[in-house]
């Protein structure tokens, strides 16, 4: 199968801290990958490198045949294809939901406002929030804000969606609504990388689970195998920790 994202011997340091240590990873088109691991293991850094929110010092990352960390790469063009959803949503507080979603299509893709709004409404329907198009982020619950953030990412019609702990900042009763939206995305064949500890989500839709610790990929496997029969001791203790949590 065709590779959508490819990490080749990637290293990254923050000062002396080796946050990514020789990462090799291939993600194929339409694959859903879940990345988990203890905090500080480098999992967020890993996906932030994919759309170059972070620089790397060694190795190569290729996304959709584009070398991401090449000096000559057209970053805008690259980022149009990659939707990113943050843990803290990062909706623009001074704009309505609709303005949040149409900002990039109008200004980056140079789409007409009318067309962008039509797409935005379509995406809002997908996340079940058509009635909130005129609201400001401050008027929405955390779960609703995160669904808007997903719609904002989708509005650029990306080929890849990256999720950085999308449910970690949410109250428990709101996690479900966000995960439901993500599950629906999977059925549309979107390539997805999700940093999350939601085991239920991983078991239901993930093709593969990657377990990271101290900047390294320690274990990779099918979700059922990984969660029920982890091969390494570190993964085992991590899983028992999130289970008792």
């Amino acid at each position: 199968m065709e590779n959508m994202i490819e990490f080749k011997n990637v290293h990254k340091w923050y000062g002396k801290l080796h946050v990514l240590n020789d990462i090799n990873l291939e993600i194929s088109r339409g694959e859903v990958l879940v990345i988990c691991g203890p905090s500080g293991s480098g999992k967020s850094t890993l996906i932030r490198c994919i759309n170059r929110l972070e620089e790397i010092q060694k190795g190569e990352i290729v996304v959709n045949n584009t070398p991401v960390h090449d000096k000559t790469v057209n970053l805008t063009r690259l980022r149009e294809d990659i939707g990113f959803v943050f843990q803290q949503f990062h909706l623009y507080p001074h704009m309505t939901v609709l303005q949040n979603i149409t900002l990039a299509p109008v200004n980056v893709k140079k789409m007409s406002r009318k067309k962008a709004e039509a797409i935005a409404m379509e995406k809002l329907e997908q996340v079940g929030l058509t009635d909130k198009s005129g609201a400001y982020p401050g008027q929405l619950s955390g779960g609703q804000q995160q669904r808007v953030a997903i719609a904002r990412g989708l509005a650029m019609s990306p080929e890849i969606m990256l999720f950085d702990e999308p449910t970690s900042a949410l109250d428990p009763e709101m996690i479900g609504e966000v995960l439901d939206v993500m599950v629906n995305l999977v059925s549309e064949g979107m390539t997805m990388c999700v940093v999350t500890h939601e085991m239920g989500f991983a078991k239901k839709v993930a093709d593969r689970v990657v377990f990271m610790d101290e900047g390294k990929i320690v274990e990779t496997g099918k979700p059922d195998e990984f969660f029920d029969n982890p091969k390494t001791e570190r993964a085992e203790s991590f899983i028992s920790m999130i289970l008792t949590h």
Binding site: L75, R77, F84, V108
Partner: peptide
């Protein structure tokens, strides 16, 4: 970062 991710210059 949200702005950067959606390709705004």
């Amino acid at each position: 970062e949200a702005g950067i991710s959606s390709g705004l210059n």
